[in-house]
Amino acid sequence: MIDWITIFSNAAQELISPTTAAYALAALGLAIHFGYTGLLNFGQAGFMALGAYGYAISTLSFGFPVWAAVLVAIGASVIFALILGIPTLRLRADYLAIVTIAAAEILRLIFTTNTFDAITGSATGLQGYKTGLAALNPIPPGTYGFGPFTYNAFDWWIRIVGWTLVVLFALLTWLIMRSPWGRVIKGIREDEDAVRALGKNVYSYKMQSLILGGVYGTFAGMIFIMPRAVVPANYQTSLTFFIYAILLLGGAATIFGPIVGSMIFWVLLSFFSGFVARAVEVGWFPFMTQVQAGQLRFILVGIAIMLIVIFRPQGIFGNKKELAFVK
């Protein structure tokens, strides 16, 4: 018999999980790039990797305190954004796409290679960097919560930190997007030549947007590694594609879209994986193995991306009139 309660409570847990927060933040950064500025950044996984490794390496190899490790991660992603932006932001949009996807892969390969094993831990990755954040935890040890949402002090702490960051960054996005700066950014999305003809330094604005959204991704990367280890295989191109799926699901040029999109994405994915895995277990799908059941969700994400783009390009929260795509 299928254990529906476990499936549902596992799915419900995703609602506030740090992973959901991390994806929401990464998608919010991508909303600044893609939804508001029209930049095709396909290297968000790279920004997240820099957050993860920047934080973990500064903590483990150099013994930096939390604040310094965070600054290192931010610095690394600012430099990364500059390296990506300088050659490509003057070129057509698809060049940025190819360069960002290539740069994110370069980072992943560098983090994977055995050459730098001493620092990066190569394919095995890194762990043991959480003590700094745990030391800042004001919650006394113990287990708190109700129903499916019962966690220990550290688990609550990373949820609080993660979602506080999401709220702060959402607020920041809301502030800047209703300001004249946001107006220029949206103008660039519509037609950068027109904005240039009005005396705005389009190149500089695109760079600012790339850096800003990248920093969001860096914070996402740092939240992402709190419930798990840093493993290079997590930062594959498909991570960026998942974030795109979330962004498109919620609505590209919206603030709530990426956040709610991330919640829906993870709850549904968890529910679906849980259901299929249990169903295979009890023999409802005799043609499928447990391993195959795990792969099914990737197939579904792929199909979902296609269907959303074709049939509801504005996402759940997007204004129907405002089809948030660059021309």
Binding site: L40, A93, D94, A97, S238, F241, Y244, A245, L248, Q295, L296, F298, I299, L300, V301, G302, I303, A304, I305, M306, V309, I310, P313, F325, V326, K327
Partner: peptide, 20 residues
Amino acid sequence: VGLIPLMIVSIGLSLALRYT
């Protein structure tokens, strides 16, 4: 459908086919 949405459709297709 614009070129950028088409590109994203191709990404979705790539993901779906690969895991299929």
